[in-house]
């Protein structure tokens, strides 16, 4: 039971982290005007969070649907895709998540340590523009979830919000040809391991 409780807490922590990370990516990569962002403090570091209600709601709804998959250890990757005007991906921020077997989790497992590790990931995102090329104007974004098992089975689990349906993404539409791979950060804790890297299109146009 303690293990299941931990998975639920880990899903909460990860979704809160992903929310901060998505806002920060949208700010750093200039997907939206900087005027809608406000400086806030998360994990004891300054971050930029959107104040636009519609955008915030969209991100929250997305993550609320991702949470049950993380809770059941069924989300392999959460990917923030930035697309050009023609809806072709220019950058993919890939959060590769893996959780250890439930048996290895005990009441001694420290959750506070996880938050310290997540801070380091946030810091890396906030400076990632230094290693990425500028994006073309008019970019938009989407969030993808790579599930470990059959999508049709998991589809039911992600439809947790009425009026926020999910569909199976076409691989051709979300993949890039020969992307440049930029590792940003790897974090390893007792209860979750996460690797963040960016796949960047060679010629962004």
């Amino acid at each position: 039971d303690i293990a299941l409780l931990f998975l639920s807490v880990v899903a909460d922590i990860l979704c809160e982290f992903l929310e901060v990370a998505i806002h920060l990516i949208l700010y750093v990569r200039e997907v939206y005007p900087s005027g809608i962002f406000q400086k806030r403090k998360k994990y004891n570091v300054p971050v930029q969070m959107s104040c636009h209600p519609e955008l915030n709601q969209y991100i929250q709804d997305t993550l609320q649907c991702v949470k049950p998959l993380i809770e059941k250890n069924e989300a392999e990757k959460v990917v923030v895709v930035i697309m050009d005007k023609e809806h072709h991906p220019v950058e993919r921020f890939v959060f590769e998540i893996s959780q250890p077997p439930l048996l290895s989790i005990s009441s001694e497992t420290l959750l506070s340590h996880v938050e310290q590790l997540l801070r380091a990931v946030i810091l890396k995102i906030s400076v990632c523009d230094a290693v990425l090329d500028n994006n073309p104007p008019g970019c938009t974004f989407t969030v993808l979830v790579y599930t470990r098992e059959s999508a049709t089975r998991n589809m039911e689990k992600v439809q947790v919000i009425k009026d926020f349906p999910w569909i199976v993404a076409d691989e051709q539409e979300v993949l890039m040809q020969e992307p440049r791979l930029i590792p940003l950060k790897t974090m390893t804790s007792d209860i979750v391991k996460m690797q963040l890297y960016v796949e960047e299109r060679a010629h962004k146009g």
Binding site: Y32, V145, F164, P165
Partner: peptide, 27 residues
């Protein structure tokens, strides 16, 4: 990519930049 993995995405798109700029101007 592991075998059997599938990719899911929200059907709806987020608000686009133009919509957000319009809201900003209205404010």
């Amino acid at each position: 990519k592991s075998a059997g993995a599938h990719i899911l995405k929200p059907l709806m798109s987020p608000p686009n930049r133009e919509e957000i700029l319009t809201t900003l101007l209205e404010l």
